[in-house]
């Protein structure tokens, strides 16, 4: 059974279909690439899958404990609790909070005390906070940000902010991780390190990863399957080899001078 299934997804903005009739099927532990020219509807598709937008038509189903559950139109936080997490194309960290707090905030699924326990400082509060603290530091270690734990997120360099976004998403304990242009603005060395990191995370956490990316070397080397969007429609899907040789993709996206 697939992990995530979207059927005939459509999203219309004022008469314009940003995503139209897109179907996806994603299996456990896959690493999927989502590519397409600018304005093809990739981020809108992410927003539909993670609940930021409600689909105008179509269904989204997530495998929750062996049963397919419809999640189209659910609130983003509820979808996140079911095991889907994301990063943002235009980095959206909690800028004025510490790196550590950024990660802790995303652990709400794990927190088993309420406001009253916190106010009364019951023993449970101290237990749970100690637990969260440890988990958060562990996650920072995974993305090599341990030294920066007490710094404000806004003071991190760009590449580290991207890694922090990944750590924050991991803190929600996702089954599926959506990465929106994780390598945007990185130099070739950083991109290479990121590729290694993504592959490692997938193994270590048993993740299914879907990523939007313009850097073809990253997509081609990392992804097992690729979906190609153009003008809101899915024009091709398949393994990197198939995509590379698909005439429609070459025409719509890669153009004539594509050297891959």
């Amino acid at each position: 059974m697939s992990l995530l299934q979207a059927n005939n997804l459509t999203r219309i903005f004022g008469g314009l279909a940003a995503v139209s009739d897109v179907s996806l099927e994603i299996n456990e532990n896959e690493l999927i690439g989502l590519i397409g020219p600018n304005g093809a509807g990739k981020t809108t598709l992410f927003n539909l899958l993670t609940g930021v937008y409600e689909p105008s038509a179509g269904t989204i189903e997530l495998n929750v404990n062996g049963k397919m559950k419809s999640i189209g139109g659910m609130a983003p936080y509820a979808i996140t609790k079911l095991g889907m997490a994301r990063t943002f194309q235009n980095i959206r960290l909690f800028k004025n909070l510490t790196v550590l707090d950024n990660v802790k905030i995303a652990m709400s699924k794990n927190i088993k005390y309420g406001a009253l326990t916190a106010i009364l400082r019951l023993p449970k509060y101290y237990e749970e906070e100690a637990k969260i603290d440890k988990l958060a530091w562990d996650l920072l270690e995974v993305v090599h940000l341990t030294e920066k734990g007490n710094e404000l997120a806004k003071n991190l360099p760009y590449g580290e902010q991207r890694r922090l976004e990944i750590a924050r998403a991991l803190a929600t304990e996702p089954k599926i991780l959506f990465l929106d242009e994780p390598a945007a603005g990185m130099n070739p060395q950083e991109t290479k390190d990121l590729t290694v990191l993504i592959r490692r995370l997938q193994k270590q956490f048993g993740l299914t990863i879907i990523l939007i990316e313009h850097d073809m070397s990253l997509v081609m080397s990392l992804c097992e399957r690729i979906y190609v969007l153009d003008y809101g429609k899915c024009i091709a899907s398949g393994n990197p080899e198939e995509i590379r040789n698909n005439p429609r993709v070459i025409e719509a996206y890669l153009g004539e001078g594509a050297e891959c």
């Binding site: 983003p76 936080y77 997490a85 943002f88 699924k109 916190a118 509060y125 929600t172």
Partner: peptide, 27 residues
């Protein structure tokens, strides 16, 4: 005490970026 707890951090996250907070599982 409220401010320095998980619910308090959730509030801070809302102040910083509501969309991101919601995406991180915060109601």
């Amino acid at each position: 005490n409220f401010g320095r707890s998980a619910p308090g951090r959730a509030c801070l996250a809302i102040r910083e970026d509501e969309v991101a907070a919601e995406a991180m599982g915060i109601n």
